[in-house]
């Protein structure tokens, strides 16, 4: 299996306070990867340094065995929903077609193929019927789906998503999840920053467990254990008390499914 993402001694500091410390991992292609850890553990920073948006103090990142600039067109990014002004005068379709913007194509016109791919991406997330709406008129989950559509329109091989499930409604969560499975089937690699331990082990087949340092990186079954979770979440008692339940739940898939079907 080829390696999609690797980091070597990656260290990132803000104002000399380390946010990521000496992160070393390799992740194979074609996986759904969850990045987990407590608040302030450097999850978003990890994503941003993979994307070249923050400069590491030391260490480096390789994507598909190359540097970011060589493979940028194969990488797509879904930022946190709060990072933009949703009152901006722009329609759903215009946001999706931004996925077709390229560094060297900014001046030329977008062609039919670009518009077709944008519409196709909206269709996949179930937002095509909202294409002409202004983005402020959408619910939080629908806005998130538009962001995912923009990334899809880019036709990348590696997708980096920052909290796509944060504050989304059940319908949007379903839509994004089934899309992720479809993407995995198509051989895409998707790395997702996720905060919810309850759903994590159902969503992902690979995990990166962080708390400034790398606690563990590997297939979900080897990472999602009480021991590693305790190491990552340390003294957070409320979470600690849930950890053993969660691990137990994972061992009984039938119970887990009935748990999931209950209304939240």
């Amino acid at each position: 299996m080829k390696t999609a993402i690797e980091t070597h001694n990656l260290t990132v500091a803000y104002n000399r306070r380390p946010v990521l410390w000496d992160i070393d991992f390799q992740i194979p292609e074609g996986q759904l990867i969850g990045v987990l850890g407590p608040n302030g553990s450097g999850k978003t920073t990890l994503l941003k340094s993979l994307m070249g948006l923050v400069q590491p103090s030391s260490g480096y990142v390789r994507l598909f065995g190359q540097s970011l600039d060589e493979v940028r067109s194969r990488i797509s990014y879904v930022p946190q929903r709060e990072s933009v002004d949703w009152d901006f005068p722009i329609s759903v379709r215009e946001v999706a077609v931004m996925g077709r913007y390229r560094k060297h194509k900014l001046l030329g016109r977008l062609n039919k193929e670009d518009h077709r791919l944008a519409d196709e991406a909206l269709e996949k997330v179930g937002m095509l019927s909202f294409a002409d709406r202004q983005i402020a008129q959408l619910s939080g989950g629908q806005q998130q789906r538009v962001f995912v559509a923009r990334a899809l329109a880019q036709q990348a091989d590696l997708y980096l998503m920052d909290e796509p499930f944060a504050g989304v409604d059940a319908a949007s969560e379903e839509a994004i999840l089934s899309l992720l499975k479809e993407m995995k089937q198509a051989g895409k690699t998707v790395l997702i920053v996720h905060h919810d331990l309850h759903t994590a082990h159902q969503f992902f087949d690979w995990m990166v467990l962080l708390n400034t340092r790398l606690i563990k990186c590997g297939p979900t079954s080897s990472v999602f254990t009480a021991d590693y979770l305790k190491q990552a979440y340390g003294g957070q008692l409320t979470i600690l008390s849930q950890v053993s339940d969660l691990v137990k739940a994972r061992d009984f898939p039938i119970r887990e499914r009935s748990f999931k079907d209950q209304p939240k």
Partner: peptide, 19 residues
Amino acid sequence: RGLKITTFDPEYAAAVGIS
């Protein structure tokens, strides 16, 4: 288009390599 994308979502613009 350059002004539009860097105004609406500068982080995404930077991520796809737009200055």
